[in-house]
Simulated scan of single mutants.
Amino acid sequence: MECNMCKKTTNKCCSRCKLKYYCSKSCQKNDYANHILVCPQRSADILVKGVYRDLIPTNPAVLYEYGFENCMTPLDQTNLFGLYIGLIKIIGCDASQLHSWWENGELPLNIKKAYDDGGYTINADKMISLAKPHLSKHDQAVPFRSLPESKRHVGIFYSIILKGFLPTIELPHWIDFGFCACKVRNIYRAGELSEEVRLQYLYQDLIVEKGCKIDEFHDAYISGTVLDLIKRKCDKTKTSWLSASKIETFGYNQPVKSVYNLKQYILSDSVNMIPAIRVDYGFGNCRTKDEEKQLKNMYKKLIFAPQFDAISLHKACIAGKIFEYVSSILPNDVLRADLLRNPYPLKEY
């Protein structure tokens, strides 16, 4: 038989479908994105096939095994699907890995490990190919993993944008490059772009149309002026909405308003609660898991409310008036003031 890729003679075939032949692991890997679309298999294979077709799965087994049944809204399903897109297309996890993780009861743990910087950058040399032309000649000539962490973050972000993706909520890019400040919507209307997609298009314009190189973007990232770079390089007709929508970006290792960490924690099932969230937003007042779940569900409902504004919640937090703010957005909900207490405003000494 002939190798499906290079046409060399071989007797090795796909161990699952027994239909496609490959002379080497390299050829099989190079054909993976095409072959998975026609190779029927386990729930993990159906999920991977859906990722390459950009279709959220409907198969009951996939919905159960990979967490989609736990999603409360269509947007929750979209966000979870985005997590799997990043895991499969960018990080490079395959169906066998996913199936093994699920079978061993370690799916959430291994997804988190894969998204950690260490595991993420193992595959960086492979995924950086799209962004490589935007690097300086010097940086193109050295291994990507040898670049400073801040520049690796920018290179990975370029790859995500150039692939036409949004950064998943679990990645630091989601906060650093302003997607955390975009409004979250429950309902999407035909022809109406979400703020996250509008921001994605601005980055595409900056990188592709305006030709912004990674060194220039990296300098802005280090100094915390990425938003200024966008406004300076891109047309005002495309950037005028940024100020009205209170979009803000953050520099490398720059302090971040804890309200954005709260959004990240509330909107993702695989992000851990950091101490700032526990102190600022009342989780430290919870005495049981049920109270913690109750508070988390309240914040999720708040974030999805059309009137919600992250900066207003941040201001209410530092003024010690979270209960008043939440009550103004969710007036018909039974709220517990005791869970929404925080140490603010701090006393002056």
Rank of each mutant, 00 (worst) to 15 (best):
G224T: 01
V279P: 00
G224L: 01
K246Q: 15
F217D: 00
A244I: 09
P255L: 07
S243C: 09
P255K: 09
T225K: 12
S240T: 14
F217A: 00
V259T: 13
G251I: 00
S258F: 02
D219W: 04
G224I: 03
T225A: 06
D290A: 12
T288R: 06
R232V: 09
W241F: 10
T237R: 12
M298V: 11
I277S: 06
K233G: 04
N285T: 04
R232E: 15
Q264F: 03
N297W: 10
K257T: 08
T288W: 05
D290L: 09
Y265P: 03
K238Y: 09
D290Y: 09
E292G: 10
S268V: 05
T249K: 00
S245L: 09
N297A: 13
Q294E: 15
Y252M: 00
L229A: 00
Q254Y: 07
D219E: 15
K238D: 11
K233Y: 06
T288S: 15
T239L: 08
I247R: 06
N253T: 10
N272Q: 14
R278I: 10
D290Q: 13
K238E: 11
F217S: 02
S243Q: 14
D290E: 15
E248D: 13
N253V: 05
I274C: 13
K263C: 05
L262W: 08
N261D: 14
Y221V: 04
Q254I: 00
F217T: 01
V226D: 01
W241E: 10
T237Q: 13
I230R: 01
Q264C: 08
T225N: 10
